[in-house]
Design a protein around this nucleic acid. Structure first.
Lengths: 144, 144
DNA sequence: ATCCTAAAACGAAATCATTTCTATTTAGAG
DNA sequence: CTCTAAATAGAAATGATTTCGTTTTAGGAT
């Protein structure tokens, strides 16, 4: 089951260490995004020694490799999310329960093209994230 | 000339203090985005007393009121940009010279609608920002 | 014009998420 | 099984941002 993760790590040119595998397992099991510290607290039990910096470092590296994705949060803390979707896509983030849903098509290619054409600039990356309430949380909201 | 800014502040329900006006003037004169500390350093000369926390607080308040806009930066520090465009729009940010250009149409309404329909969620806000090199910086890049 | 009060600003100190640093351990190629 | 570059530990540092109690001020009311 984590042969998948081991393979993903190798593909990203990273060693498949037990801690990295555990981080991936834990995040994959998570229904929503999680912070480095939250993950660390839960992971500590499974290792006699596990430093918080290790969790930070790995989450960042995994996110750079595209194995994990980062959530942009108003409180400016770091949150990560396991997303097996390897296509280009974006996320709808529930502000209430932290669930993250994929948004398949982003339609930004057209915008990028327009920007390049209009001002001669070159678009290197883009950030797109929808924030709101997921189906379940929106329902609960209404019942109040 | 800053009667405009005073009016904008009043409209946002904020007092038109000299320091707020100075912050707005300075940011408006700026070709690109700026950090709280940068603004503070330049503004200090114009007031016998000006605290960095005051600059932070005002930038945040002004951004919440929609008078200023915030830039999402990879280094996770705060940057602000004066944008007189009152229509809904987004920004193309030059990673090299900090210039910010408006992107008029964002086409996200369609995405929002799709998300609501598909999963029953409610989209409350969205983040969209293009990063890259502006026309001038892209040209310089090529000449190297 | 002056008064008055809520809002704004001071600035030193605190916060605290994130990063750095050096020594130690380990994955995995050979 | 060895060896080396990569990964980790853990304590300590960092530094942008925020807090707090006090003082000042903008601007509506008098």
């Amino acid at each position: 089951m984590d042969q998948r993760h081991a393979t993903a790590l190798k593909a990203a040119g990273m060693k498949a260490t037990p801690k990295r595998l555990a981080i991936l397992e834990m995040l994959e099991a998570e229904p929503g995004y999680a912070s480095p510290e939250e993950l660390w607290k839960r992971l500590k039990d499974r290792f006699d020694r596990l430093g918080l910096p290790t969790v930070y470092r790995n989450l960042e590296e995994l996110s750079e490799s595209g194995v994990l994705s980062k959530v942009i949060h108003p409180n400016r803390q770091l949150y990560y999310y396991f997303c097996s979707n390897r296509e280009h896509h974006h996320h709808f983030v529930c502000l209430s329960c932290r669930k993250v849903e994929d948004i398949p098509s982003c339609g930004i290619e057209a915008l990028e093209h327009e920007v390049s054409k209009r001002n001669g600039g070159k678009v290197l990356s883009h950030i797109l994230q929808l924030n709101g309430l997921c189906g379940g949380c929106a329902d609960n909201e209404e019942k109040r």
